[in-house]
Design a protein around this nucleic acid. Structure first.
Lengths: 182, 182
DNA sequence: ATGGTAGTGAACAGATCTGTTCACTTGTGT
DNA sequence: ACACAAGTGAACAGATCTGTTCACTACCAT
């Protein structure tokens, strides 16, 4: 559709992911992508607008990825929600793993009410809802919240410590929670 | 001892905490603290040096706080490690809660090998060791890792979503893990 | 009273930041 | 052949960034 716009989002995603949002300057994104500054500001009103576009794309990617894994598990007759932790496990093993974009965005735009912070919060709530929708017996929703907390914990554990085992650790905990309650 | 140095660390801590490390400029810290720039650079070689000093102080504070809570629980005959989650619960309820400094630092200085990133990783490992030292039956150390993952998860869950219930959620999960294994 | 220590205030350097503007080019559909 | 859309490249604005330097002041101990 708009190849420049998409290319900018992809390049920005890579740099934001690795170096953070404040540390990544517009000029850097332009140099890496080979796009001119005027074009960037034709497609995005501001840097914040670009960040939000990056987060939006990543949100859609992640939701699709997890929904796919859940569906696949269902087809195989496995516990659907546990498949999320297998996705995490693969993710943590990739070279380009620098933690969760949304957690990192939340850290840099820390104030509640900030648009970027709120976007990250919304993403996390959507993730939790996805878990909730795939649990059979969770009347008050607390099990979904616990599993979502495990997901966040696993990502941060893996990133800060450089520990690739975090997903397996969290999966084992999730199994315990599920066998106890479902 | 060195009132200016301490005052700079305290002011920087507050601003870094609320606004992040890159977003907080030196001039801002100077304006808030009322200290001159020359003095700052007499006490700290660089901004990174100041950040590390802030993290060092926060590390010592946190370890002392948790060790105190653990000791208190021991004296009352309660499960020592669970006391950590009560500390978290109080922390999340304070107005100045913007997540964990070390997780946030890890997010901004994302690359493994970066000095700030490594400091955060060391803090997290020390925290986990503190948990490990207060568990009776954890031969392979995996229980301590699981509890540490819960701590990280609770902090991130509380911060990104603005949910003050995360500590109680994590504590309930921790209780399950402990009754299952200890 | 004299020297040392700690700090101030202000200017400065040089880089980098986001964002704007404008003349020009390139490709495409009619 | 012509109009239009998309993009380039470069200059520019104005702010902000970290870090340095220097002349001066206040205080304190000897």
């Amino acid at each position: 559709m708009q190849p420049r716009r998409q290319h900018l989002i992809d390049t920005a995603y890579r740099l934001f992911n690795e170096h953070g949002y404040h540390a990544t300057g517009i000029d850097w994104i332009l140099a890496e992508s080979g796009v001119s500054k005027a074009t960037l500001y034709k497609h995005f009103r501001s840097k914040e607008d670009l960040i939000l576009a990056v987060l939006q794309q990543r949100h859609e990617q992640l939701m699709a990825l997890l929904e796919g894994a859940i569906q696949e598990a269902k087809n195989k007759g496995e516990q659907p929600v546990l498949a999320i932790f297998d996705v995490l496990d693969e993710w943590f093993a990739t070279e380009g793993f620098f933690g969760c974009n949304f957690i990192n965005a939340s850290a840099e735009y820390s104030t509640a009410g900030d648009e970027i912070h709120e976007f990250a919060a919304r993403h996390k709530r959507d993730m939790e809802q996805l878990i909730r929708d795939n649990l059979d017996n969770d009347p008050d929703g607390s099990l979904a919240a616990e599993l979502a907390l495990l997901v966040d914990g696993a990502v941060v554990y893996a990133h800060t410590r450089g520990d690739r085992n975090a997903a397996k650790l969290a999966k084992r905990m999730a199994e315990q929670l599920l066998t106890g309650r479902e």
